[in-house]
């Protein structure tokens, strides 16, 4: 007998012993047989529903779950705000920027201020303007002249109980902050920026109020 045959025989012996150990006891055999006898006495129509009610209910629930998810997803997608194209949102913000810039430039014109030039430049802000450009526009227009696009909450508590303050960056999911609720964040930790905290596909997005930029929170 060569090594391979010997190894094969050993494997077989060990497996046979393992399967033997899995054999049902006489008690188990009798118990299952008794249950089958009971089943055999039940008419076939009733017998088909031998599964516990809880299992059937669970199956039904599992069937309903994807259906409910689809309904919820459809409801979210069909919200009036979701139906509004992104371009429309951006143009609304442009209007806000333009209005504030206009107000600043007319104020400056009355005062004969040199910042008019800056304000005029700010008028030409494209929808995709960078944050720094938007900040420049802000500086020109005067922060007091513009309303933040969203309400500010300086402190947000993460699900882990960590308190986020202005300047903190947090990568995670906020269970207690609804989309469209706002927090104060800072991109560079130096100044607070009005922004919107929005959850999309489980990721946290921060939408800065000054520009139309969408950024990850971390």
């Amino acid at each position: 007998m060569d090594e391979r045959e010997r190894s094969e025989m050993e494997t077989r012996a060990r497996l046979v012993a393992a399967y033997d150990a899995m054999s049902p006891s006489a008690e188990v055999t009798d118990r299952v047989l008794a249950r089958l006898r009971d089943d055999a006495r039940v008419p076939e129509k009733k017998r088909k529903s031998v599964e516990p009610d809880s299992r059937s209910a669970l199956r039904f629930g599992l069937f309903l779950l994807p259906l409910a998810a689809c309904v919820v997803a459809a409801a979210i997608l069909l919200r009036p705000s979701a139906m509004m194209p992104t371009a429309t949102k951006v143009s609304q913000e442009e209007v806000v920027v333009e209005e504030t810039v206009d107000a600043a430039s007319s104020d400056a014109a009355v005062a004969g201020d040199a910042s008019v030039e800056v304000a005029e430049e700010a008028e030409g802000l494209a929808p995709q303007a960078t944050k720094s450009e938007a900040a420049e526009a802000d500086a020109a227009a005067g922060a007091e002249s513009r309303e933040p696009l969203c309400e500010l909450y300086p402190i947000v508590v993460t699900p882990e109980g960590r308190e986020l303050r202005v300047g903190d960056v947090y990568a995670g999911k906020f269970d207690d902050v609804r989309p469209e609720e706002s927090v104060a964040f800072s991109e560079d930790g130096k100044r607070s920026v009005a922004c919107e905290l929005i959850e999309r596909d489980g990721a946290l997005f921060v939408r800065y109020g000054d520009s139309a930029d969408w950024r990850f929170a971390s």
Binding site: S23, P24, T29, L33, A40
Partner: peptide, 15 residues
Amino acid sequence: DLEAVFRRHFATVYR
């Protein structure tokens, strides 16, 4: 016959 089938093969099926 089903009881006989059970007696013959229950252990195999159970294992």
